[in-house]
């Protein structure tokens, strides 16, 4: 599966560049409900273990369980070592400027680009 589409959110896995694109509002109930998205992220790393773009330019909302899911993924990638992660976000979505810096604390090499 390379995409998850629902009424509230979409998550799409793309190749060249290797990217996972999030949009909508992600407010799922706990880690169980986030498991399919974690699988998609893992699939992206299998596809290309050197570079990954997490595109959240159109992700309006992410609840704390979603922050937990992304944080856990980022820690796992830091432990892996060589992968370069770029998070592409939006300046017009206020939570991103507030909360994305926390991901960088977990993985200092993570790059953030707010357009």
């Amino acid at each position: 599966m390379t995409q998850i589409k629902t009424e509230d959110y979409n998550v799409v896995l793309e190749q060249e560049p290797n990217a996972v694109i999030f949009s909508g509002s992600l407010r799922l109930n706990g880690m169980d409900e986030y498991a399919p998205i974690v699988d998609l992220l893992d699939q992206a790393v299998v596809q290309n273990s050197d570079n990954l773009i997490l595109n959240i330019e159109n992700l309006e909302f992410l609840n704390s369980s979603g922050i937990n899911m992304l944080s856990k993924f980022v820690i796992k990638m830091r432990q892996k070592g060589k992968i370069i992660i770029l998070v592409k976000g939006s300046q017009t979505i206020p939570w991103q400027a507030k909360s994305l810096k926390n991901l960088q604390r977990l993985m200092p090499s993570l790059e953030i680009e707010l357009v």
């Binding site: 922050i67 937990n68 926390n102 977990l106």
Partner: peptide
């Protein structure tokens, strides 16, 4: 809390309690 949670096994992953409050 996040580092501890990441180190725990996936099977026991209940997420991090209090993460929302801390955020």
């Amino acid at each position: 809390r996040l580092e501890e949670n990441a180190a725990a096994s996936d099977q026991n992953d209940q997420g991090v309690s209090g993460l929302g409050i801390l955020t």
